[in-house]
Nucleic acid binder design. Structure first.
Lengths: 209, 209
DNA sequence: CGTCGGAGTAATCGAATGATTACAAGAATG
DNA sequence: CATTCTTGTAATCATTCGATTACTCCGACG
């Protein structure tokens, strides 16, 4: 008889649980999410989730850390990509270089937050700034992104400002569902249009996926 | 003997409860907030809160509606203010007019979200786009703001885009506590600086209030 | 004066949830 | 083969929370 749940290493199980937790925390938020929901999404029992992570709070922190780590990794990969694709000749204008990197990073971000769980886990983290233990984790993650844009992407201050602001607007439009409402609501469509300009089709396509 | 709680009309009591609920929902989020916390913040008993609003969900919806209404009202007041202060002569450049309105609206927004409860109640609403009953309320509120910027403030599409994006970035920086961390953290201060430029002092002053 | 409606509470209930405990079963180890 | 460590579960507990019920108290009104 095949066992009800396959026996795998604790490390692999932790990763499965973190992936499931990203979805559940994203859908429901930190406090509405239950360890039981996470457990069933991961295909195991609730007490095992608690035993592997200690507390629900600890599980959320590790989920948030993992998500922030994936964000950073995706950005770094996008930067490497942009540099590969770009002309390696030294006479490429620094400005054009910055634009190319910005475009790649934007693409990478859209790809990531296309997963609603990832998007909302990040946002829930940012909104828990008052929490004495989750707050610092979220702030540190945001600041890591900032440092990456400044030091690794070489963005100018105003470029950082615009990039982050656009990102936060994308978050809100996707999280609230205005992106999806764009088909069917004339004003929502116009809002998406003036926010994303020519990229609106691409964004909508991703959003509905 | 003075009664433990003063007897006042149900309408006044509802308003008191909604004000208290804004704080509690903001601090804790929708599902971590309890009707008992709201009741004690309003100085009454928990069952009375439930009786006046029916369910916790209904209480949140009315709280969100009230907050969105106050946001709209504050924006409209700021617009009226900008038009009063501006030169009434017809030869004032439309561009300068737009800038003045933008500045006033920005100020009004900062004044509003200076109250952490107001800020976070709005954000929690926007993040519940998937909720079948709360989602539509939040989206409608956002779209009302959009229409106001377009029809009443007369903003150009790109101006709307920038205004909203900056607003969402402000939200995130304030909610996550990066604004407050700016004193003491060099990178956080630099991030605030390149986000708000010359207005950074004003924002920080408000944020710490 | 009596009674009737509205303001408000105390007591309590049922369901949900995070956590603990005790136990089972498979794999490695000697 | 016996032992021991690891993976995993069933049962259960204590708490919390939203909601309900049954009541009290006050003021207005005829």
């Amino acid at each position: 008889m095949t066992p009800r749940t396959e026996r795998i290493s604790a490390d692999e199980r932790r990763e499965q649980i973190l992936a499931a937790a990203t979805t559940v925390f994203g859908e429901l938020g930190y406090s509405a999410a239950t360890t039981d929901r996470v457990a069933r999404a991961a295909g195991i029992s609730q007490p095992y989730v608690v035993r592997l992570f200690g507390t629900k709070e600890q599980l959320f922190i590790e989920t948030l850390r993992r998500t922030l780590g994936r964000l950073l990794a995706a950005f770094r990969a996008a930067l490497a990509d942009a540099d590969d694709a770009g002309d390696v000749a030294a006479d490429v204008a620094a400005d054009a270089d910055g634009k190319a990197r910005e475009a790649r990073l934007g693409e990478a971000y859209l790809e990531l937050v296309e997963d609603r769980g990832t998007l909302l886990t990040l946002l829930h983290g940012f909104m828990m700034g008052s929490d004495p233990v989750i707050g610092p984790v979220a702030r540190d993650g945001f600041l890591q992104v900032f440092r990456m844009l400044r030091d690794e992407a070489g963005f100018e201050p105003e470029q950082i400002h615009r990039f982050l602001a656009d990102g936060m607007l994308i978050n809100t439009l996707l999280a609230s569902g205005i992106g999806l409402a764009a088909k069917g609501d004339r004003d929502a469509a116009e809002l998406m249009d003036c926010t994303f300009g020519s990229h609106v089709a691409e964004v909508l396509e991703r959003a509905s996926a």
